[in-house]
Amino acid sequence: MQKISPLRSSIEAFNKFKATRANKAQTAQNAGQAASTNPFGIAFKGTVIQMDVFEKKSQNEETKQVSPSLKEKLAQAGKLLSSARVATINKFSTLKANAVAFGNKIKENSINAINKVREFGNQKVDFDFFKYNVSNLVNQPIGSLESMLAAELQGA
C-alpha cells in the first residue's frame, strides 16, 4: 500500500478546492449574464427589449475609423439613449391609457347624471318648501289658508 505523504494530500485537497471554486465562479457568471439581459426591465409592445436590439450596423461602420475604446463608448451611449427613449414611450403610453380611462369614467358619470335628471323630469316633484313658505302663503286667499290649516290640524 502506497503511503500518502501529508504534503501530497494537502496539494490534492487544494486542487479539488480550486476546481470547485472555478466551477462555482463559472455558474455565477452565467447567472449574472442571464440576469443582465434585461437590465432596465423595459417591455415594448409585450416584448422584452434587450440592449442588443439597439445596435445599428450603419453606426458600426461609421465608427470603424474611430479608436476602439471611443467606439465602444459611443455604442454604449447609443444603447442607453435608445433605452431611455423606449422608457419614455412606455411612460407616455401609460399616461395616455390613464387619460383615456379617466375620460371614459367622466363620460359614464355624465350619462348617469343625465339619466337621473330625465327620471326626475318624468316624476312630479312637489316643491313643498316653496309652497309652504310664509311669504308665499301670505299672498294666498284666506279660504285656501283656512282649508290648509284645517287639513293639517285634522291630521294631528
Binding site: Y132, V134, L137, V138, I142, L145, L149, E152, L153
Partner: peptide, 30 residues
C-alpha cells in the same frame, strides 16, 4: 301633522291683511 307647515300657515294668517284671517285663527287656532 307637519309642525313647520302649521307654523308657517299660522304666521301667514297673522301677517295677512284680510280681516277674515282673525276669524280663521280664532276658530281653528284658539
Amino acid at each position: 301633522m307637519n309642525n313647520r307647515k302649521v307654523k308657517n300657515i299660522i304666521e301667514a294668517l297673522g301677517r295677512h291683511k284680510d280681516a277674515d284671517s282673525i276669524r280663521v285663527l280664532n276658530e281653528l287656532g284658539t
